[in-house]
Design a protein around this nucleic acid. Structure first.
Length: 220
DNA sequence: AATCCATCCAACCGCGGCAGG
DNA sequence: GCCTGCCGCGGTTGGATGGAT
């Protein structure tokens, strides 16, 4: 039923040429984003709309930041991934100038590997604490999210060598099998009373996690 | 210099959600 | 309510590149 994306019958991957890029840039600058299905014909491109959209969003858009990820960005990705999972677009939305594809690739090629070397399961990673703020409507609330949902869980499901713990950074991280319930502490509250917040209940939650230097482990 | 292999990342694919008719 | 088309997302692929042998 679906139209095949590629115009080419052999449907092979094909890199974008300079001319194609320029055509796409010119067209979008002139007419704006959107109407992707009709764009290729209008712009004189032998590509499908999806391909044009992807090229624009991931590569040609003027505000895209290219180059290596900084330590702060990497740290933020790890924290956000611990909280959100593989929601790359959401994670990328918190990293100005970065695209979901770029974040995803960086995770798979760098961070994943790094975490595995540290003896952690990157698919099941939880930071203990994430400090940031949430917006509910226009009201900003400063919070700390405590990810330690199951502190008594026995650590027998991965017999990682104990010397992994020699890596101080590894002590930041822990595995658990819990899902999306998080203990959220209202930082501004003098009582420090914890309230349970299911993040799934707030699909439109504007989660503004700002990076903080947060030494929640013995990393010195 | 040639070949092999691992890694990176741009590009593609398939699917689900949503809106409009 | 159903159908169709568009949009956006996450997973996957494969070409390019660089290091090792």
């Amino acid at each position: 039923m679906r139209r095949p994306c590629s115009e080419k019958p052999d449907s092979q991957k094909r890199s974008w040429s300079r001319e194609e890029d320029q055509k796409l840039i010119d067209y979008v600058q002139k007419h704006g984003e959107g109407c992707w299905p009709s764009l290729p014909q209008a712009a004189g491109l032998r590509r499908c709309g999806k391909s044009c959209r992807l090229r624009w969003l991931n590569y040609l858009k003027p505000d895209i930041k290219r180059g290596d990820f900084g330590e702060d960005e990497e740290d933020l990705i790890i924290r956000l991934h611990a909280l959100l999972g593989n929601r790359w677009s959401l994670i990328a939305g918190r990293l100005p100038g970065r695209t979901d594809n770029e974040v995803k690739n960086y995770w798979n090629s760098h961070i994943r590997k790094k975490l595995i070397q540290m003896g952690h399961d990157p698919n099941n990673l939880r930071h203990r604490l994430i400090k940031g703020s949430i917006f509910i409507g226009t009201t900003a609330k400063s919070i700390i999210i405590d990810e330690e949902a199951n502190p008594h869980k026995e650590d027998d499901d991965d017999d990682e060598p104990s010397n992994n713990n020699n890596n101080p950074a590894a002590k930041n991280l822990q595995n658990d099998d819990d899902d999306d319930d998080h203990q959220v502490f209202d930082e501004s509250s003098s009582t420090s009373k914890a309230t349970k917040l299911n993040l799934n209940a707030f699909p439109d939650l504007n989660l503004d996690l700002t990076l903080t230097t947060y030494h929640h482990c013995s990393d010195h």
